[in-house]
Design a protein around this nucleic acid. Structure first.
Lengths: 204, 204, 204, 204
DNA sequence: TATGAATGAGTATTCATTCAT
DNA sequence: CATGAATGAATACTCATTCAT
């Protein structure tokens, strides 16, 4: 039907706009994003934005939640490893780092955002919260499993999950900020993180 | 004398301006800071700023270097511990976290800034760079000492220093971003960081 | 079609802006021109300027190049005179003076401008340079022709061209500056310039 | 008496201010002159200006009338030459050019100024006016003398004076504007001006 | 659907000037 | 005599947004 085609067309134009926005964000960060820059790039008039989005903020939110999804998709597609559960953690964080670097501006925008609304989704440190975050929940379960197997030391799983997460988070953010760290060095750093952290939680 | 009083008055006004600036930065971050906002808050005319500061940047620099100093002062005033060198690390990072929380906006402004000029001072991840940063240099030396004593595992000191630093950095940033984490929880998190990390590097 | 009308409307507004600009330039010179003054005169908001022009400079450039074109058109449309080549010079300079008076502000803006960029187009006095200027090149060729015919004295054509040009240039500038010299007096002055100058270069 | 010393001191400070102003005008032209720049250079406060001058304009006027005087002094100190009166003209204009180049900014400021007040002193082109200008008066007298001697052609002295003056004026202005014309080239141009012009007015 | 026109509020900075001390 | 404080009016330019068409 015509209506469907119309809807598809509408979706296509929205994506065009989002693509242009992504490109600008990639080059100049979120704070460099402006309605005019988007429409200039598309040879559209600024007003068109308001046909497809409520305002500039809606564009930002779309971009951000998108990056958010991509990142959490990365973490959730890991393969089970019964004997060495820490390998799951390694895989999850390796994926996370890769995804974060691929959408670094979005990652920063989300994870360093202190809007109350955003924090509701990203807060992790308060006691009890981890149960709500898919990522941390997974981590906690893994830790509990490892402790049950007698493989991990008997640390509070929630607290340990927060420690592991923030440790890797620090690496990710720092790598993004410094911009030109070589992939090789990134790998060495991530590897050594795992070495130290797993050494820290594995029973010996 | 009158001259002294005048000087004190001048200093007082400068501080008034800086205070207003701090307040705005606290509420809206450095990128929300504007000359107009400062003078509106003080019921001054915008031009007066340039009577007390060369330009907006001088205000920012003052604020930033202030926080910067406070932070580095925190790290450098640690007491030597021959037998348990890891206690030095614990003290340094504990101080660092406290100082960072005290000037959280400045800490973020500096440590999350990706300006080339700022990065020259804050970059840490590239191989060889740690030797230039006072903080990381201290860490490296500590690690070498510990390895020499046979107390730490024989890991590459530079890489290990980067791992320890980014791990704690992740915690600090996350605590700042989430804003209302209780001091008690912060302490628990920091403690557990040390537990895991030291467990990870200490020989057993 | 609507599109054409729209375009015409756009052109009309651009001209409105340019007219206002011209008026201000006429009254206060180019250095008195400001975006605010233009829009105040038109009861527009300052921002609208940037809808029609890239920036203030584009307005200036438009005005200047307009005058520039008019002036060079004037000089280049002269009719050949084999027997009395000095009549060509007379015609060229007569046209030049008329054109300069018609766009006097632009003429001053260009010819009295000492920006390096502008000078590259207007410099005439350094040896060898005249070959690059269309006006002076024409003069030189005329002089060489006249010398070849045995009509002009055997003076260095380049130097002579510079002398003739600066002599008339002085008259033009002075007439513009004094503003209310009568056309009659201007004619007398120009005529007498030619009398003296041609008397000076024609063989007798 | 103390009063006299006071007056002398006052005069000295005024000169200090004028010197600073001159320096700025030399470097940045009159339009680059600002009260703040003057007082910054002298380590004074901007307000001091208003103790010694009514306003910024009075400074400009002082500088300008000074340059004016210097220039006309140059023209009026020529030595009488009975047999070849054109040598007087040559000397006057040579002096004028030198003086103009020495105070080029002031010369431009005065001679290209179209303020009514300034024009009253500098206008030369209207019929009858030359009698009021010392420079042109001198020129006219010289021309009349030469005509009387049968040495110059019988041209209207006033008109001829205006032609000679504007011709040299064009050279001076152009030399100032182009800034880096070598002294040697300036000499050649001036010489050739005289050659052509005198050739134009001398009887043969 | 799309756009061109338009704006009001904002950005940092400079300037000449005033005034109380 | 001299100054520090202060200002109002400018400067060019950018931005998100609205609205009639």
């Amino acid at each position: 039907m015509g209506k469907e085609r119309q809807l598809r067309q509408r979706e296509a134009t929205k994506n065009e706009i989002l693509d242009a926005a992504r490109e600008i964000v990639f080059k100049e960060g979120f704070q460099g994003l402006s309605v005019r820059k988007i429409t200039n790039q598309l040879d559209y008039s600024p007003a068109i934005i308001y046909h497809y989005f409520k305002n500039k903020n809606e564009i930002i939110e779309t971009l951000v939640s998108e990056g958010y999804k991509r990142i959490f998709a990365a973490v959730s597609s890991i393969t089970r490893n019964e004997d060495e559960p820490e390998k799951e953690i390694r895989e999850a964080f390796t994926n996370l780092l890769k995804a974060a670097l691929d959408s670094s501006e979005e990652y920063k925008a989300v994870m360093l955002n202190d809007d109350a609304a955003v924090l509701q989704k990203t807060a992790l440190l308060k006691p009890g919260v981890p149960e709500k975050s898919p990522t941390l929940k997974m981590l906690c379960e893994n830790l509990r499993r490892g402790i049950g197997q007698g493989r991990y030391s008997c640390y509070d799983p929630e607290l340990t999950a927060q420690v592991l997460w923030t440790a890797i988070f620090g690496l990710i953010i720092k790598v993004i900020i410094e911009k030109d760290v070589s992939q090789e060095q990134i790998n060495r750093l991530l590897d050594h993180h795992f070495t130290v952290l797993f050494n820290g939680i594995l029973k010996r």
